[in-house]
Computed example of a mutant assay.
Amino acid sequence: MPKQSVLPPIVISVLLFCFFYFLTPWHDHLLMRYPRVIDGAWWQLITSQLMHHDAPHLWFNIAGIWIAWLLFPEQLKTPNDWLMVVPILLASSAFELLGAPTYEVYAGFSGALYGVFAYAALQDALKKHWIGGIVFVGLIIKIILDLDQPEHGDVVAVYAHIGGAVAGIVAVFLTQKPFINQPEK
């Protein structure tokens, strides 16, 4: 098993923890609200991903970060491997904003987590590792079920999940070296 950095999941977990527990007085200004973002509160595209509606929501997302770290040690090995979280996070918020503008409020890191899982699982699957293929197929099935049967998922977050997953998939192809130039092993 490759030696991987524990720093990125710690930093992300601490950020999520601090935003939820220490920024409570500003909670309303940090959640993403469609009219406010359109009127110039652009920071809500970022801060809404770091906020959560309640403690279980927060702790499930923190657990998801650590599960991704444990499942994909090769793909999430260094702090640089985690830099893709930023564009994934922004894409997740943008998809939510554009896909569900009538919803009152959005908060949570799950869209970014979908992107992290899509990114790591697809990379793993392309290297012909079975766990990545299973996780990637499961992620796609979950998104399809959420779209088809919204009562089984959080309708508000479906677009954020799609945005995160699409951004994760795009990130794989933007960060891969061309397959043509790779020497055969």
Rank of each mutant, 00 (worst) to 15 (best):
G163D: 05
V86G: 03
A125E: 07
G64V: 09
T78P: 03
V105H: 07
L83H: 11
G99E: 12
G163Y: 10
A100E: 04
L83C: 10
I88T: 13
P8A: 10
W82F: 10
L58Q: 09
I12M: 14
L147A: 11
I46H: 01
V166H: 06
I12N: 06
Q49H: 11
V156G: 03
P101F: 10
V156L: 15
W82Q: 04
L7A: 15
W42V: 13
G163K: 07
D28Y: 14
L23G: 10
F179K: 14
L126S: 05
G133T: 05
V11Y: 03
I38H: 05
F136T: 02
Y34S: 15
L90W: 09
A157Y: 02
Q123S: 11
L97N: 00
P183W: 13
H53Y: 05
F19T: 03
L113P: 02
H52E: 02
G164L: 13
V158L: 12
R33P: 01
T102W: 09
V137C: 13
P2V: 15
A63L: 15
P9L: 12
Q176A: 10
H57D: 09
M51S: 07
F72E: 03
L50V: 03
Y114S: 09
L31G: 00
V6C: 05
A157Q: 15
P2T: 11
Q49W: 04
Y119C: 11
I46K: 02
F179E: 14
L23K: 06
A171H: 04
F60H: 06
P150R: 10
G164Y: 08
K177D: 03
V116G: 05
A100I: 01
A63I: 07
V166W: 07
P87Q: 08
F109P: 00
S5P: 01
K3Q: 15
L71K: 00
G108L: 02
I162F: 03
I38K: 11
E74C: 11
V156F: 02
H57C: 01
W42K: 03
S13P: 00
F72K: 07
V11Q: 08
K128V: 04
W130L: 14
Q44K: 02
V170S: 01
F179Q: 14
W42C: 01
Q176L: 15
Q44I: 03
L90Y: 06
P178N: 14
K185R: 12
P73N: 09
S13W: 03
L30F: 05
L16F: 08
Q75V: 00
S93N: 05
G99M: 12
H27C: 00
D154L: 11
P73G: 09
L145H: 08
P25I: 10
H152N: 11
E96T: 13
D28H: 14
I38E: 11
N80C: 04
I169F: 09
A112K: 00
P8D: 05
D39I: 07
V6W: 11
V116A: 08
G40E: 03
F20M: 01
D154C: 07
S5H: 09
Y159V: 00
V158W: 06
I12F: 15
V172M: 10
L7T: 14
D154S: 08
P178M: 08
I46V: 15
A94R: 00
E184V: 13
V14E: 02
L50S: 06
L23D: 03
K185Y: 10
N80G: 09
A157E: 12
F72Q: 06
T47A: 02
